[in-house]
Amino acid sequence: MGKTYNINDIALMAGVAKSTVSRYLNGGYVSEKTRLQIENIIRTTGFSPNQTAQNLKSKQRKVVGVVIPRIDSYAVSRTLMGLDDALNAVNMQMLVINCSQSIDREIEALDNLSKQKLAGIVWLASAISKRHHKIINQLESANIPILLLGQTHPTLPYIAYPDFDGAFSLGQYCKSLGHKEIAYLGVEEKDLAVGLNRWLGFKKSFDEADISLTRYFCSFSLQDAYELTKKIINAQSNYTLLLCATDNIALGAYKALSEAKIRIPNDISLTGFGGYDFTQMLHPSLTTIELPFYEAGQIAAFKLRYILLSQDKTIGQTTNKQENDPYLQLKKTFTNSAAALYLSSAEKENISHGCQLDSHQLCTTFTLKKRQSVDISDKKK
Rank of each mutant, 00 (worst) to 15 (best):
L12K: 15
L12M: 13
L12W: 01
G15T: 02
V16H: 09
K18E: 02
S19V: 10
S19Q: 09
V21Y: 00
Y24S: 04
N26D: 14
N26H: 04
G27K: 08
G28T: 06
G28H: 11
V30Q: 08
K33T: 01
K33G: 02
K33R: 10
K33F: 06
K33Y: 00
K33N: 02
T34R: 04
T34M: 04
T34E: 00
T34D: 01
L36D: 13
I38N: 01
E39C: 05
N40V: 02
I41D: 05
T44L: 14
T44Q: 15
T44A: 13
T45W: 09
T45P: 09
F47Q: 11
P49F: 07
N50G: 06
N50Q: 08
Q51S: 10
T52F: 13
T52P: 02
A53Y: 07
Q54A: 07
N55C: 07
L56Y: 01
K57V: 14
S58I: 10
K59N: 13
V63E: 05
V64N: 00
G65I: 07
V67H: 03
V67D: 00
P69V: 01
R70F: 13
S73I: 00
S77G: 06
R78M: 03
T79C: 05
L80G: 01
L80Y: 02
L80F: 00
L83S: 07
D84G: 01
A86Q: 11
A86N: 02
L87M: 14
N88F: 11
A89M: 12
V90K: 14
N91I: 03
N91D: 10
N91A: 12
M92E: 15
L95H: 08
L95S: 00
V96T: 12
V96Q: 00
V96P: 01
I97P: 02
N98M: 12
N98P: 15
S100Y: 14
S100N: 13
S100M: 09
S100L: 11
S102D: 13
I103T: 15
D104N: 14
D104G: 11
E106G: 08
E106I: 08
I107M: 13
I107E: 12
E108Q: 12
E108L: 13
E108G: 06
A109F: 08
L110P: 01
L113C: 03
K115L: 09
Q116E: 06
K117H: 15
K117L: 14
A119K: 03
G120H: 03
G120N: 03
L124G: 03
L124W: 04
A125K: 05
S126M: 13
S126H: 08
A127T: 12
S129N: 09
R131V: 03
H132Y: 11
H133R: 12
I135T: 11
I136Y: 07
I136V: 12
N137K: 12
Q138I: 09
L139A: 02
E140Q: 15
E140Y: 01
E140P: 04
S141D: 15
S141A: 14
S141Q: 14
S141R: 15
A142T: 06
I144H: 05
L148Q: 04
L149N: 00
